[in-house]
Computed example of a mutant assay.
Amino acid sequence: MKIVVIQGPNLNMLGTREQQFYGPMKLEQIHAQMKDVATQSGVEIEFFQSNLEGELVDKIQECYGEADGIIINPAAYTHTSIAIRDALSAVSLPAIEVHISNTYRREEFRQKNLIAPVCTSSLVGFGPFGYHLAMVGMLQLFNEIKAMQEAQKTQQA
């Protein structure tokens, strides 16, 4: 099984930017923790970060046929990107959206979410721990998918 973690704009500045919202952890530290969980679980994991919307769309599309699930923090594009929403919908993979801050307790424009309706689940406001929760959630989804596939095989036999 393979999980692709896609990080949107300005997340490369974690640990530096607006620590009152995002805390002191750097993106590399978050990824190291996720990699540990993946290794312990026997799951392949890949990380990608870009500040460019088109590159995020390209990476989502590359997941089709290559990955089993996506964990995504589209960051500011959450509120504006129909292109990212359409890409997630098109690849039809389990996707878990993560936001470090509670976007619903922030500015009104951050409360509009175009991405959540095409994701399997969303984790908002748990800080960097939200990524760990997303890993646990994705592993559970993988187990449920596997169980459904095995049940279908049994019914067909």
Rank of each mutant, 00 (worst) to 15 (best):
E66M: 14
E66Y: 10
A67M: 09
A67Y: 02
A67Q: 06
D68E: 13
D68A: 08
G69T: 01
G69C: 05
G69F: 04
I70T: 03
I72G: 01
I72P: 00
P74R: 10
A75L: 02
A75Y: 03
Y77W: 07
Y77F: 15
T78L: 06
H79Y: 11
T80F: 04
T80K: 09
T80R: 10
S81P: 09
A83C: 10
I84P: 01
R85Q: 14
D86Y: 12
A87K: 05
V91M: 12
S92I: 06
I96L: 12
E97G: 12
E97T: 09
V98D: 06
H99A: 06
H99L: 03
H99V: 03
I100T: 09
I100H: 05
I100R: 02
N102Q: 07
T103P: 00
T103N: 12
E107C: 08
E108F: 10
R110N: 11
R110H: 11
K112Q: 14
N113Q: 13
N113G: 07
L114D: 10
I115S: 03
A116P: 02
P117S: 09
P117E: 07
V118T: 06
S121H: 08
S121A: 14
S121K: 07
S122W: 00
L123V: 12
L123H: 00
V124R: 00
F126M: 10
F126D: 02
F126A: 08
F126W: 09
G127R: 07
G127E: 04
H132C: 11
A134W: 03
A134I: 04
A134L: 08
M135P: 02
G137T: 09
G137V: 09
G137K: 05
M138C: 01
L139T: 12
L139K: 15
L141Y: 11
L141I: 15
I145V: 15
A147K: 08
A147I: 02
M148P: 00
M148K: 13
M148T: 11
M148L: 14
